[in-house]
Design a protein around this nucleic acid. Structure first.
Lengths: 522, 522
DNA sequence: ATGAACACGTGATTC
DNA sequence: TGAATCACGTGTTCA
């Protein structure tokens, strides 16, 4: 981890200390969460963030897709990382209430590009995979409509880019081959890897249990084949949603007639980028564990982990579907490696910029038009609005504070002549309120010792203290303890010399006070 | 006017009601001004905004340049519009104090592209025209280094664009011809027109006095010839600064090797854009008058006036300096008019976007890197920061309000009988009551630890317990001890899951409760 | 040389 | 059919 989490603050810390998972869905909620980590996540385009306490640490999950909480998912997560958490399955603080549920697909369409892409006609066939909120299983089967063809190092060009179904793909990319090696099953490309993040666990200690071993072979194992019966289907179903979407997105992208060079590898000389392939396997969801109390490690720039991961999500998966644009021969004017790098870098820059735009969109309310320019304008005015509001509040507060101070001072000089109701005014009738109350009162001169045991319900401590106050007894010492459903209070008080009670009087007075129902006060 | 200004709010309204001109310099100040109009102005790239009350209305001036206030300028404005304002020459609320003066050129260089351009080597010869704060007169003479040539409809191209002195210009543009008609004096192109904005005055009523007649001929009169001895030199000197800058800027732009087509008109077929020429005369400063009390008029989109004006500034002046890039023959692949329009539109879009970026940069503090992406990120976090701050303040205020209310109520029920203080409440010293109260609140999940130290007077134990009860906090443990005149209380409580507080919230709530808690209770 | 950041022209898409 | 927006590839400029 490149960050440390203190004290139970933020979502990870909270999850760690309470032992209850935290699940936040929706960029807006992420941005609004009282947790910097969540804001970071949202800033880098994540739409869902989950913190699951696991033994000595917290398992952190994120997705650029909107994934809602469901007991099944939690169960699958638990199985996948097979930890034995004592957390009740569906308890905890799910932060995905009505508001989030009220923004299923239409709203996200405004903030999430991947969902936006679904408006593309070429993606209609998988469109139904978007709407379901509980997108868990069997969504992967909606993917096959994208036809795959094997044209190693070919230069096929699609002359009519507007027809969405004539998509051609080259599969000579190394990642592609990895996928293909697992068979022709369309599910096979719905994979995820544990990535480098898991390799950190080795140095972190065994934060994540056994099923996720930090062996590098695990990466290939996950990427290449999903053999294990339980985890693989889980991941496949859990993330197939997003996978399908991004695939569709790529369809759209490649449909463009511009020279659509591949993203993480170049088509014609596929082997060039092979070395970088294992380092960036396709992945939809980021797994990452925050060490419990706060682990200090390398002086990486913070956020970099999330940023890198988020970008990876954005720029890696499109690796597999590829298409030859109409640009025929060799690349326009290269041979050196720079231009391609340049293009890629520029692409990433744009991507990052857009991520920021989405983030900004998420935090700025009332973004009328989805236009970038107006978004910026709205952001500015929103900031100004917030500022002036804040300023006004500051003034208000100052004013109120002054006023309160004045009143306070006035009250001070004006002691408190309360409706002098001392113990004599009170009746001795004790309502049957306090069952099983036990009270013991002893006096020694002007000092008195009081011991009271009763049910902890109805805030007996408040009652006793109020009674002592009303009886004008100065508290010297008091203690309150709770055992089971009982509360035991002890106090030593000093009676005002003008009014000394016998223990019996005191007991009676206190009893009646305590029996009196509480609600009146304030 | 497309907007109405109420009540003396904002700069225009303030100027109108106070009768004192308002002068705001610097994008940051514009953005920070408590005036929507100013923010708009800033949003559209203006750096200076001036509101001069004039009889029945307010004369509004804006400049994309940084123009500082000086009595001479005011005098010239007064002469130019020869109104007889009763405003003291140098009184009023000049909002360009030290801070603004402290950001002369270096600072603006970060937010103003036009100033940024000055770093271009080709502009060194006029660089000295930037630094002076009182840039009024005789700056226009720094302009001549840009050599003007008359090459009507020629297609001269400069092959070595890096040399700043070989700038070639075509003067076949209609605006240029208008300028030339006034003579070869280099001052002559430093003109401004009253533009269409003035034509609105006709319908608005005579807001602006006599010298600015709403005759359309006035436009040509101002643009074509500066006959009247007083106004013309004024305008020339007043705006020469910016003119020089933008000219330099254009130099840089045209230095690029790309096909630098002209901005508001195409060079080769200069006559094509002739029709649009009168509608967009070169102008550095926008003149515009806000009707005093608030004039309702067409349902135009607000901001449109400013936006149009600002964009005009941006896209029009470069008309005169023109240069042929190295692209030789005709335009790459056009003939139809679309591509050029398209390019132009895209340019404007970019321009607008950048304007917004500058605006955002101005309102977001601590923009570490000038990078667009990080700017956006900073904006997001800034917004979140503002939000949480605002939320915290809101809570604070609420607490304070409750506290004040309680005190108020107490005072009411306690019709201040000063002579009544009996011995128990005593305290002869008028010192602050709650002084020396210390509270510490920590939360761990749903559990909270509270430590409170205060004077033992007024039964703070009863107050605390009542407060805990009212806040629905279950007391697990509590202890009260007294040392000297202080009482020290400690308690651990459990928050109900539905109502979890942050430590700050809890502290604020408790504080207000304690302060409010009063003798009345029961 | 290398990478980051930016602006520009261009094609595509949408209304 | 324009107008507006967007994404992309490219060239350029700074460190």
């Amino acid at each position: 981890m490149t960050q440390s989490f203190i004290n139970g603050g933020g979502l990870p810390g909270q999850a760690f200390y309470t032992g209850a998972p935290a699940w936040v869905t929706g960029a807006d909620r992420l941005a609004a969460a009282p947790c910097d980590r969540a804001r970071q996540a949202q800033l880098f385009g994540l739409q869902t963030m989950v913190c699951v306490p696991v033994g000595s640490g917290v398992l952190e999950l994120g997705s650029t897709d909107v994934v809602f909480h469901s007991p099944e998912i939690m169960g699958k997560i638990r199985v996948l990382f097979n930890f034995s958490t004592p957390d009740a399955p569906s308890v905890a603080s799910w932060l995905t209430p009505q508001t989030a549920a009220a923004t299923p697909a239409t709203d996200q369409g405004e903030t999430d590009p991947s969902v936006l892409w679904l408006t593309d006609p070429s993606a209609v066939d998988i469109k139904d995979s978007v709407s379901p909120v509980s997108a868990t299983a069997d969504l992967s089967v909606t993917k096959p409509p994208i036809q795959l063809e094997n044209n190693p190092s070919s230069s096929i060009l699609t002359e009519s880019p507007s027809s969405s179904m004539q998509i051609q793909r080259t599969h000579n990319q190394p990642q592609q081959q990895l996928h293909q090696s697992s068979g022709s099953d369309p599910h096979t490309h719905l994979v995820f890897s544990k990535k480098f993040n898991f390799s950190e666990f080795a140095s972190n200690g065994s934060v994540v249990p056994q099923s996720a071993k930090p062996e590098p072979s695990d990466i290939l194992d996950f990427a290449g084949s999903n053999r294990n019966p339980s985890p693989a289907p889980v991941t496949g179903s859990f993330f197939s949603h997003h996978q399908a979407i991004t695939a569709a997105a790529d369809d759209k992208r490649n449909k463009r007639s511009t020279g659509a060079t591949s993203r993480a590898s170049n088509n014609d000389e596929g082997m060039i980028s092979f070395s970088s392939a294992p380092a960036r396997p396709p992945s939809d969801v980021l797994f990452k564990s925050s060490g419990g109390g706060g682990i200090l490690d390398g002086p990486d720039s913070d956020q970099s982990d999330l940023e890198a991961s988020a970008r990876e999500v954005e720029s890696i998966q499109p690796v597999e579907p590829e298409k030859r644009p109409k640009k025929r021969g060799r690349k326009p004017a290269n041979g050196r490696e720079e231009p391609l790098n340049h293009v890629e870098a520029e692409r990433q820059r744009r991507e990052k910029l857009n991520q920021r735009f989405y983030a900004l969109r998420a935090v700025v309310p009332n973004v009328s038009k989805m236009d970038k320019a107006s978004l910026l304008g709205d952001a500015v005015s929103y900031i100004n609005e917030l500022r002036s509001k804040l300023e006004a509040l500051e003034i208000d507060k100052e004013e109120l504070r002054a006023q309160a101070e004045a009143l306070e001072k006035e009250r001070e000089s004006n002691p408190m002549p309360p409706p002098d109701h001392d113990l004599r005014t009170m009746n001795g009738s004790g309502g049957g309120r306090c069952h099983g109350v036990e009270m013991e009162v002893k006096t020694l001169g002007s000092e008195a010792m009081i011991r009271l045991q009763c049910l902890k319900r109805n805030h007996p401590a408040a009652k006793l203290m109020a009674a002592l106050r009303d009886l004008d007894l100065d508290v010297h010492y008091a203690s309150v303890s709770v055992v089971e459903e009982f509360m035991i209070q002890q106090a030593t008080v000093k009676m005002s010399p003008s009014r000394a009670y016998t223990p019996e009087q005191l007991r009676a007075a206190l009893y009646s006070k305590l029996a009196a129902e509480a609600p009146i006060s304030r």
